[in-house]
Design a protein around this nucleic acid. Structure first.
Length: 432
RNA sequence: UCCGGAGUAGCUCAGCUGGUAGAGCAGACGGCUGUUAACCGUCGGGUCGGGGGUUCGAGUCCCUCCUCCGGAGCCA
């Protein structure tokens, strides 16, 4: 068998005889010439068979090539402008490796329910392959960004006791003799402990919300990256966030241009994603939204429509900061000049993609934090270790969480985040 | 949980004031030497989501249940 080559590397092998293994995307035949488009995960390759130039057996083998059959194709690589990838394969041999009869996801249209039921096969389509490759780049950019800035990765637990942001939205499971355990909805509290050990840390993993949300922005299991920085105040925190988001977007523009083109993503709004982002206080945001026709009242968190309305008035991401205390979590630091507010910020992506980051400076005063825990009726005994962090060398610190699927959906320009993860977990979906 | 929408061929859908169930695509077969969701011709394909009711007659009208979709709330 001639040398085996991945499709993405074929331009280096023009004139050589090679073998490519992959899956048949489409076939077209005109009686005496046939085209087979092959996918191997690294790219797409048009293979050309000419009846006059191949053995009868090879031509007959073509008839068995149906959508998504796996094959090994041998032939000579040649440059041809008529071919989509610039190179094509002049086929001399075809071996069927695995037949595929009546592949359920055809090139024609399907409804979302049907596609999700066949997610394991839908994943092979060009669009989904492109999205997964962008997601991979986003994840790699996240890791590289923090590595370059001397953050330490700390993996926080997924099984936890009763600790987190709010009760009632946690998945429960039995935990031996210790009662009920919950799937983590954030690693942040553990990050705070780790930041006191290591300075700048982050956790990156799946997180779970048992909210009965049925919207294009929600999954029950999603990936979140959460950095936590000792000695960062709220302003430092926002500066890091805008550097971080800009870095991720720039990496995708640089290294996944082909995928974004495949997705027909207009990249001009992405090219504007550079620091500094816009900043607007919650007070000003409410006033602005009211003039734009929103019925938002002071004290309430921004609704989805409010986020879109507000973000559409800016040409790049925008921070909304200094939220009302009552609308936010107990661990956020009270504003030094206005006890009604906390030093929290959200980051809203443009083009209606909404909130991709929630962050805050953390309450570092022991007594104030204790008061907030009691106020929220949280089980005090579960927070003993968390309060310890304020008893032994308390420190100014801040952090944030970025939702990976929301970020991928925004960068790819896809309306629903269920396509931004390989196997979405939703209110009504646990299969496949 | 609330509001709205939809369940008809393998898939996507049409089916009007109730009167013998339709199209496109997919599939099978045939044709075509540069196709790009190829194209042209022929053919097969149905418990109209379940149950009940009205009617001479229900895919169509009424009741009920189920499932799914979109949105809200909550949030990444």
């Amino acid at each position: 068998m001639p040398r085996e080559v991945g499709i993405q590397h074929l331009p280096r092998h023009v004139g050589e005889e090679v073998t490519v293994r992959g899956w048949v995307q489409t076939t077209r035949s005109s009686g005496k010439i046939a085209f087979v488009v092959l996918r191997d995960g690294t790219g797409y390759l048009q293979c050309v068979l000419s009846k006059a130039e191949v053995d009868e057996a090879v031509w007959e083998a073509l008839r068995q090539l149906t959508q998504e059959a796996s094959v090994a194709v041998t032939g000579t690589v040649r440059a041809d402008e008529r071919s989509p990838g610039g190179v094509e394969l002049g086929v001399t041999g075809v071996t069927l490796l695995g037949a595929s009869v009546d592949f359920p996801v055809t090139p024609k249209e399907h409804g979302t329910a049907y596609l999700l039921e066949h997610r394991h096969l839908w994943l092979r389509s060009r669009r989904q392959v492109a999205i997964m490759r962008v997601r991979h780049e986003v994840v790699q950019a996240i890791r590289d960004f923090f590595y370059e800035r001397d953050f330490i990765l700390v993996d926080t637990p997924i099984l936890t006791g009763s600790i987190g942001e709010t009760a009632g939205t946690l998945f429960e499971t039995e935990y031996f003799d210790l009662g009920t355990a919950y799937l983590a909805q954030t690693g942040q509290l553990y990050n705070e402990a780790a930041a006191a050990a290591l300075g700048k840390v982050y956790c990156f993993g799946p997180t779970f919300r048992a909210e009965k949300s049925k919207t294009r922005r929600h999954l029950t299991e999603f990936w979140m990256v959460e950095p936590e920085m000792a000695w960062y105040d709220s302003d430092d925190n926002m500066r890091l966030q805008e550097d971080f988001v800009s870095y991720i977007v720039a990496r995708c523009l640089d290294r996944r241009a082909a995928e974004l083109r495949e997705l027909e993503r207009d990249i001009t709004p992405l090219e504007r994603v550079t620091p500094p982002f816009h900043r607007i206080s919650y007070d000003d945001a409410v006033a602005k939204l009211q003039t734009l026709g929103s019925d938002l009242r002071w004290g309430k968190d921004l609704g989805a429509d409010d986020e879109t309305l507000l973000a559409n008035t800016f040409d790049r991401p925008v921070f909304v900061y200094n939220y009302p205390k009552a609308a936010k979590a107990f661990y956020m630091k009270e504003h030094p000049d206005d006890p009604r507010l906390v030093l929290a910020n959200d980051c809203l992506a443009p083009e209606g993609f909404g909130e991709i980051i929630g962050g805050s400076q953390r309450e570092d005063d022991h007594d104030r934090l204790l008061a907030r825990i009691k106020q929220e009726n949280l089980p005090l005994e579960a927070y003993g270790w968390y309060l310890d962090l304020r008893k032994y060398g308390s420190f100014v610190h801040s952090g944030f969480g970025l939702g990976v699927e929301r970020t991928v959906a925004w960068i790819c320009g896809i309306p629903h985040i269920r396509e931004a993860i390989a196997f979405p977990r939703m209110l009504t979906r646990l299969y496949p």
